[in-house]
Simulated assay, not measured.
Amino acid sequence: MILATQAAEAPATAPAASPYERIGGIAVLRQIADRFYDLMDQDPAYRALRAMHAPDLAPMRESLPNFLAGWAGGPRQWFEANPGKCMMSMHKPFPITRKTANQWADAMACAIADVAPADTEIATALSDVLAQMARGMARD
Rank of each mutant, 00 (worst) to 15 (best):
M1G: 08
A4R: 01
A4V: 09
Q6P: 00
Q6V: 14
Q6M: 13
A10S: 11
P11H: 06
T13K: 04
P19H: 10
P19L: 11
P19D: 14
Y20I: 13
Y20A: 15
Y20L: 09
R22F: 13
A27G: 09
V28Q: 01
R30M: 11
Q31K: 05
A33D: 01
R35M: 00
F36L: 05
F36W: 03
F36E: 02
Y37Q: 03
L39W: 00
M40Q: 04
D41S: 12
D43N: 11
A45V: 09
Y46R: 06
Y46L: 05
L49K: 03
A51T: 12
H53S: 08
A54N: 07
A54W: 00
P55Y: 13
P55N: 12
L57Q: 03
L57H: 06
A58K: 04
P59G: 10
P59Y: 08
P59L: 09
M60R: 03
M60L: 13
R61S: 01
E62S: 09
L64C: 03
P65Y: 02
P65S: 08
L68C: 02
L68Q: 07
A69K: 01
G73P: 06
G73T: 14
R76Y: 05
Q77Y: 13
Q77T: 13
W78Q: 07
W78V: 11
F79T: 10
E80G: 13
A81P: 01
A81I: 06
A81M: 12
N82I: 12
P83D: 13
P83T: 15
G84Q: 03
G84D: 08
M88Y: 08
M90L: 14
M90I: 15
M90Q: 08
H91C: 12
H91Q: 09
K92G: 11
K92A: 13
P93Y: 11
F94E: 07
F94W: 04
P95D: 06
R98P: 07
K99C: 12
A101I: 15
D106M: 11
A109S: 07
A109T: 10
C110Q: 10
A111G: 07
A111E: 08
I112L: 01
I112E: 05
A113W: 00
A113H: 01
D114V: 05
V115L: 06
A116R: 04
A116G: 08
A118G: 05
D119Y: 05
D119Q: 07
E121M: 08
I122F: 10
A123C: 05
A123Y: 01
A125H: 03
L126W: 10
S127G: 11
V129E: 15
L130V: 14
A131R: 04
Q132T: 13
Q132Y: 11
A134Y: 04
D140I: 10
